[in-house]
Write a protein that binds this DNA or RNA. Structure first.
Lengths: 332, 332
DNA sequence: CTGAAAGCGCTAACAG
DNA sequence: CTGTTAGCGCTTTCAG
């Protein structure tokens, strides 16, 4: 029943018959080719419209396979970080006339795997943020270029856009120290012991401030995670006067938690995030952050995948880096 | 030069030759068909892998055209409202196994037109938020189903998912009145004189409070727009004690502007937004809002377009509505 | 269980 | 300017 109305596709052939010409002529009319008589062309166009004809994407793609579709994989589009990355990727893709099919893996490894299972047959190139091991990635994407975002590939099979926040984090810590802070903690993201923590620890050492191990706590990479990480930290070490958060989302959670503790930011507690999201300007106080150009992150990934797909010389790893810099606003 | 490496596509034929079987046997092996010998199948699979074979989307689509791709058009993915709508749409589409190609028209009518120009030949159905007249929409999407979000179609050519905030706005105004507010303003969005303003005015009338014409100002539908709309309002009518904003984004701008004016929210000025974005819980004070289920908005649009595309009976306009309800948080 | 033939809808050659 | 002939890569008959 459901397909009783099945409207057999109107093909170029139907149009040709209706207009009393050959299929070829129809094709010419539709594609604005030069070699065709004006009135014939009009007749064909009219017939096409009358029949509700629409060329088949597939038939066309078969013959003229220049249609590269990029798959963009994000863990959670609602996370403003990925929204910004996606926005940058979308814009870069549009500039190149590429379609982008978006996959949201909902922060779920199983969902990510499920996506990998099908994506290889749905797009011609993949750009995105993955958490699974490279073996899994390769299985699903065998044969097509893949550009990882915010993750360094272990093998040359993949390209990766790296985030180098070392200098930015150093600026952040130096700034805190210059403001007199000596007991600086960090709210790390889970899974723990991230590179960002290393940057932080190294920066602290360089600035000559000691970081007590207990001053680093970790939490889920969410607003609530940031809040509870700060709560844990403050419960054990109420004398900490500044914190650097794994990312802005967690930092915002920390801002909120600080308020609950009756702490004023930055007077009682200075907070610096990481990412530099636009979101940071909406909270009060506005969030200081080690900022990266998130949109450039997405755009760079698309740029690289484009080169890979067209066979142009790919950007060397050295250029596949987005650097961070401290953006001072109000929270520190 | 750039295509000197042009790696002629590996086809099913190459695999067949390499495995010493016919093309159809390859096809069977690849598609897990029953009628095939185990060892033959393995041999084919090995050959395919060895050659780096990937089936052509197009050839496959031509033969088995069940691959509906949905185009999702948003004015600005960075606007959290549309992020949430997109997220809902993406999830609904995934549940149905549909690909979603995302188009961001960057709040630009020209870009929207450019998108309409090409979208018809790139996807099989369209869901999204458009500002152009229906004629323009139809031109680009002739022959494929289109579901408009947050906009009532004038003709049956289109489906539309309506937002009915009347009752929610009434709750909001009633709440303000119950808290003693009598001079309630509105920050309308541009283009002005929106339905939301009508809801507001009607609700005020029903609650027995008069709204001085000067108490309604308008601004761009952005954070800054909300801020300046409030500034304008307060400059002329500093005695207003509460405002209802066109949407949450503007309301957040108002929150920030109120702070600059030295007004405490909600003590000196109560603020209620519209949309109920998750974002509203991140600001201080948390934003009270006439909330709609934004993700359902996107999901409903996908549901309808799915019905349209499969020929199932479409949802009647009465069911294509998302209603709003007041979510009280801290700002009012 | 496997192969041969046919055709999906379209466009790029070549004729006329 | 227009029609005819091929063939894109794949899957579905239908024979063997």
């Amino acid at each position: 029943m459901s397909s009783s109305t099945e409207p057999r596709r109107v093909t170029i052939h139907d149009v040709a018959r209706s207009a009393g010409v050959s299929r070829q002529t129809v094709s010419r009319a539709l594609n604005d080719k030069a070699e065709i008589d004006g009135s014939t062309k009009q007749r064909v166009l009219d017939a096409a419209r009358a029949l509700g004809y629409r060329p088949s994407r597939f038939a066309r793609g078969l013959v003229r396979p220049d249609t590269t579709t990029i798959g963009l994989v994000v863990p959670d589009l609602l996370n403003p970080f990925f929204t910004e990355v996606a926005s940058g990727a979308l814009e870069a893709a549009r500039a190149r006339g590429r379609h982008v099919v978006v996959y949201d893996t909902t922060d779920d490894p199983a969902q990510e795997l499920a996506t990998l299972e099908v994506i290889g047959s749905q797009v011609d190139a993949v750009v995105g943020y993955f958490t699974r091991p490279e073996d899994d990635l390769d299985r699903g994407t065998a044969g097509i270029p893949v550009v990882l975002i915010g993750r360094e590939p272990r093998t040359p099979r993949f390209s990766g856009i790296a985030i180098d926040g070392e200098e930015g984090v150093r600026e952040a810590v130096a700034h805190l120290v210059s403001r007199g802070h000596r007991r600086i903690g960090m709210l790390d993201g889970q899974p723990e012991a991230t590179v960002r923590r290393q940057w932080f620890l190294r920066a602290a050492a360089e600035c000559g401030v000691r970081v007590h191990p207990g001053w680093v706590t970790a939490g889920a990479q969410t607003v609530d995670g940031g809040g509870s990480a700060l709560a844990t930290l403050l419960a054990a070490h109420p004398d900490v006067t500044a914190v650097f958060a794994f990312n802005d989302v967690m930092a915002i959670g920390a801002l909120r938690e600080a308020r609950r503790f009756g702490l004023r930011v930055p007077a009682d507690l200075a907070v610096i995030g990481f990412d530099g999201l636009a979101l940071g300007t909406l909270v009060d106080p506005e969030l200081s952050s080690v900022a990266i150009d998130t949109r450039a992150l997405g755009a760079l990934a698309v740029e690289q995948v484009e080169r890979l797909v067209t066979g142009a010389t790919p950007l060397p790893p050295g250029e596949l880096v987005v650097r961070a810099a401290l953006h001072l606003r109000e929270s520190a």
